[in-house]
Amino acid sequence: MVDGKNERQSSQDSFRKPSPLNAQPSAINPRTSSRLMRPPTGGDLRVPTQAGCSTLGAGGYRNKVVLKPGHSALDWSELSARRGTQGQLVTGITKLVTDPEIQQLNNPQALMALQHNVPSFKIYPPIKITKAQLQKHSTAEDCWCLLNQRVYCISSYLDFHPGGAEILLKTAAGKDATALFNKYHRWVNYERLLETCLVGVYVP
């Protein structure tokens, strides 16, 4: 009887899972443990991005820069909203009033609104901008770009761009940036992001 009881006890013990507190650590292979536990070298902790998720560098990694304090996405949202009600975010706009080509293309009331310092994004019908005008605004202080037939002034936004100002000045200043934007940022609602930076609509 004792032997039978011992047998049943032994059988039950074999099916019992060890308690996590009493479990013994498994043996670690010394050949692989150092490789598995070794921290990354070079201090470069880059995370692969999803397709179209940011400015891409070589190797498909996100190529972000360290933004200045007070230049987060939330800061930009607050600034653009404030400027939208208080004044103009668009640089170089007053020169349009005296441009003969712009005068010929545009509604006189729209030009009059510009003369009275009405922010350009509030003017309807929107100011019509030509390629020649777009190309004149290609510096950091006066930077316009074209996105899907809309012209935006991105001078104020340069320092808020996660990929840095330099890449925008190189690829977008005074140019049609639609193809590059759609390649890397097609998920971004640029109409909302740059709402108060609208200069007008593009006329080929």
Score class of each variant (00 low, 15 high):
2 V>G: 08
57 G>Y: 14
183 K>A: 12
69 P>C: 05
32 T>W: 06
160 F>D: 00
157 Y>G: 00
3 D>S: 08
7 E>Q: 08
162 P>R: 05
122 K>Y: 06
175 K>Y: 07
28 I>C: 05
118 V>S: 01
182 N>Q: 14
110 A>Q: 00
182 N>S: 12
86 Q>P: 09
194 L>G: 12
149 Q>N: 15
13 D>P: 06
39 P>N: 08
117 N>E: 03
75 D>I: 02
167 I>Y: 08
178 T>Q: 02
39 P>I: 03
163 G>C: 08
8 R>K: 10
185 H>T: 04
105 L>F: 13
10 S>C: 06
109 Q>K: 10
74 L>D: 09
57 G>K: 08
15 F>D: 14
77 S>D: 11
203 V>G: 02
174 G>Q: 09
178 T>M: 01
135 Q>F: 03
104 Q>D: 15
175 K>I: 09
66 V>N: 06
133 Q>D: 03
136 K>C: 09
89 L>E: 14
85 T>S: 15
149 Q>D: 15
94 T>A: 12
126 P>Q: 13
35 R>W: 10
51 A>R: 14
26 S>C: 03
12 Q>D: 12
167 I>M: 08
89 L>G: 04
77 S>K: 11
99 D>C: 04
197 C>I: 03
106 N>P: 09
74 L>R: 06
138 S>D: 14
147 L>E: 09
15 F>A: 14
164 G>I: 05
104 Q>S: 15
87 G>Q: 06
61 Y>W: 10
